[in-house]
C-alpha cells in the first residue's frame, strides 16, 4: 500500500484532502493479489470436490461434476475480466512500463496455433499459421503485452467465426525496415458497419464479454509504440487485425542479444500455452475442453 495513504488514520481524511488523487491511490496491486488469492482458493476447493467425486458414477456425483465445470467456467471468466481490469487500471495510473526482451516470433506464433486441431474439432474453425517462409524472426518486445494482445485478437477472431465456424489466418512478416507485422484475419461476422443488423450480429457473438480487451490492446500499443489496426477483410466478410512491431531503437539483432536459451524458450512456450488454454476456455463452445499441454513442452 502507498505509505502516504493509511485508511486507519482518523485525524485526517486523505480521501477528502486528495480527491483528485483517489484514483492514483487505488491499490491495484493489493486488489490483484487479493483477487488472485480468492480465485486460487476457489480452484483448490474445485479440485478437492473433483477429487471427492472422481470415481463415483451416481447421479449426485454427475451433477456435482457438472456444477464444478460450471464453477470452473465462471471462475475462468472472472479471472480473465479481473486481469484485464487490473491491467487497464495500471495503465491508467501510468504504473505500466514495458520490459523489453528478445522474442522469437515464429516460435511464438506456432505456440499460439498449438490448439488448432482442438479449435477445428470444437468450433469448426480452421486456424492456419502463415510465416511466409520465415523460420525465425527476432524482435524486441514485451512478451506479456504481446501475448495479451495476440490472445485477445485470436479470441475475437474465434468469437466472430462462432457458431458457424470459419477460417482464421495468423500471418507473420518481417518489416523491411526492421520489426514485424503480425496479422490475424478471420472470415467471421466482421466489424459493425453502423447498420442495426450488423450491430446485432456482432453483439450476438460477443455476449458475455466486457468489451475492454481491445481497450487494453490499444493501451499496450500506446506504451510500446506498436500500432494495431482493425479493418474489414479486403476480400470478403470478416476482419483483419494488423499489429505492427517496429524495430526498437538501440536494438541490434545480433546473435549475442538473442540470448534465448532452450530452457528459456521452453519456459516461454509453456507459459504462453497456459495463457492460450485459459483464453480459449473463455470462448463460447470451448468452456468444457480439457486442454492437455503438448508433449514437447512437458
Amino acid at each position: 500500500m502507498n505509505e502516504s495513504f493509511c485508511p486507519y488514520k482518523s485525524t485526517e481524511s486523505p480521501v477528502d484532502d486528495r480527491k483528485d488523487d483517489l484514483f492514483a491511490l487505488l491499490p491495484v496491486h493489493a486488489f490483484e493479489s487479493e483477487c488472485q488469492r480468492s480465485l486460487e482458493m476457489i480452484e483448490l476447493c474445485q479440485r478437492y470436490m473433483a477429487h471427492l467425486v472422481a470415481d463415483k458414477e451416481d447421479a449426485d456425483s454427475r451433477e456435482l461434476r457438472q456444477s464444478l465445470d460450471d464453477l470452473g467456467t465462471a471462475a475462468g471468466r472472472l479471472d480473465r475480466n479481473l486481469t484485464i481490469l487490473s491491467a487497464l487500471l495500471r495503465c491508467a495510473q501510468q504504473a505500466e512500463q514495458p520490459r523489453w526482451e528478445p522474442v522469437e516470433l515464429c516460435a511464438f506464433a506456432r505456440t499460439l496455433c498449438a490448439e488448432q486441431d482442438t479449435i477445428r474439432q470444437t468450433l469448426h474453425t480452421q486456424l492456419e499459421l502463415d510465416c511466409g517462409g520465415l523460420t525465425e524472426l527476432y524482435v524486441t518486445a514485451d512478451t506479456g503485452y504481446l501475448s495479451a494482445i495476440c490472445l485477445q485478437l485470436l479470441s475475437n477472431a474465434l468469437r466472430a467465426c462462432t457458431p458457424e465456424g470459419g477460417h482464421i489466418t495468423l500471418s507473420l512478416r518481417a518489416r523491411p525496415e526492421g520489426g514485424a507485422f503480425l496479422t490475424i484475419t478471420d472470415d467471421g461476422c466482421g466489424l459493425p458497419d453502423g447498420s442495426l443488423r450488423s450491430q446485432q450480429n456482432n453483439r450476438s457473438r460477443f455476449l458475455g464479454t466486457t468489451k475492454s480487451g481491445l481497450l487494453l490492446c490499444h493501451a499496450y500499443c500506446r506504451l510500446t509504440g506498436w500500432t494495431l489496426e482493425l479493418s474489414p477483410r479486403p476480400d470478403g466478410p470478416g476482419t483483419t487485425a494488423c499489429l505492427t512491431l517496429p524495430q526498437q531503437d538501440g536494438f541490434t539483432p545480433s546473435p549475442a542479444l538473442r540470448s534465448v536459451t532452450p530452457e528459456d524458450a521452453l519456459h516461454a512456450a509453456r507459459r504462453l500455452w497456459m495463457e492460450l488454454a485459459a483464453e480459449l476456455s473463455c470462448v463460447p463452445g470451448m468452456e468444457n475442453v480439457h486442454f492437455q499441454i503438448p508433449a514437447e513442452w512437458t
Binding site: Q66, S67, D70, T73, A74, S204, L207, G208, E287
Partner: peptide, 8 residues
C-alpha cells in the same frame, strides 16, 4: 443467453 446460467 448462456445455458449455464439456466443450470446454475
Amino acid at each position: 443467453y448462456d445455458p449455464r446460467f439456466f443450470r446454475i
